[in-house]
Design a protein around this nucleic acid. Structure first.
Lengths: 170, 170
DNA sequence: CTTGGAGTGTCAACAAGGCTGACATAAACT
DNA sequence: AGTTTATGTCAGCCTTGTTGACACTCCAAG
């Protein structure tokens, strides 16, 4: 795969961005940026006995109200036991409501309560503020490239989930 | 901060990328992409009793041989106790070597052994393969934008660490 | 020179949140 | 009736974060 010093940067500028060094910088950028990306919500959550797992659940329930447990499981990529622990606390704390399905009574449909929506807003506001600043600083073309690369980096199933959510949005 | 439906997308195309909807898509792209980003190394590590923390340590030690524990601490952003546990196993497994500092004997300088370098290669090859495919698919301009946005998203101290590593590279 | 504080690293114990496996229930499907 | 599907739950394990306590080293002020 990688054989040390390859791509001596003389194959034309269009290939320069594929050197091992460039790829390594890309990895490190992902690492450091993801830290920043989660830092603000994490600070809020720390005061609430909640963690990042709760944030993710709240985010995607708010994003797709009425989603089933199974659907959420696929999006989050965790086991049902793991998700269940989180959901249990959110439901008993009154942030999430679970309703038995009308057609298929085996399913549970998940919704945010008023309180849940409030926390979701608070968390995503914090996260959006950082993202907005970064987007503004980088400019529209950079943002377009950013999204293109991220999408290309996803696993195919994740890309499908992402596209489904994205297209349901506007 | 965010007041529901703002930016009716009529302020000119240059501001369209700052709507709440666009920012939310950006968040979700980060989430799904990061999953893809770590998936391949995680699979390798799962067979080795190691986790992502070991990967990070090995990566940055390989990146800056002779670095001290404290320096690594700042880069990784965890507590020294947490890092120490990881380092202990890596050292006793013979992947990392810890040398008492010459000038300051309080410090430990960290290096990868041959075996450690081999694992580092294996892990970063897997990660680079995914990144390379994504970069190739997205094209050079997109990659430039990707890096610009990620850098803007970092905390200032992380941005400094990132820049230091980047510039020491080539 | 000694002593105290700052810097660095280690050990112990705990919590969050992943995981697997086993099992229960209810509803739906065949 | 028997099987599959969706969900929930219990128990137990692992990684990786946390705090607290402690030891060793260095350096500077008394």
């Amino acid at each position: 795969m990688s054989d040390g010093r390859q791509n001596p940067a003389v194959r034309g500028d269009t290939l320069l961005f594929l050197t091992d060094e460039q790829l390594r910088q890309g990895s490190e950028a992902m690492f450091f940026a993801y830290r920043g990306f989660t830092a603000d919500p994490d600070r809020i959550l720390a005061d609430l006995t909640y963690g990042r797992a709760h944030h993710r659940a709240i985010h995607f329930i708010g994003r797709a109200p009425g989603t089933t447990v199974n659907n959420l499981l696929n999006i989050l990529g965790v086991t049902k036991q793991s998700l269940n622990r989180v959901l249990r606390t959110l439901i008993s704390d009154g942030l999430v409501q679970s309703k038995v399905g009308r057609n298929d009574k085996r399913e549970r449909h998940l919704h945010l309560t008023e309180e849940g929506r409030a926390l979701e807003q608070k968390l995503s506001d914090a996260q959006r503020a950082r993202l907005r600043a970064a987007f503004r600083e980088a400019g529209p073309e950079a943002v377009a490239g950013f999204r293109t690369v991220l999408e290309a980096m996803m696993d195919p199933e994740m890309r499908a989930s992402y596209a489904r959510l994205r297209d349901s949005g506007t």
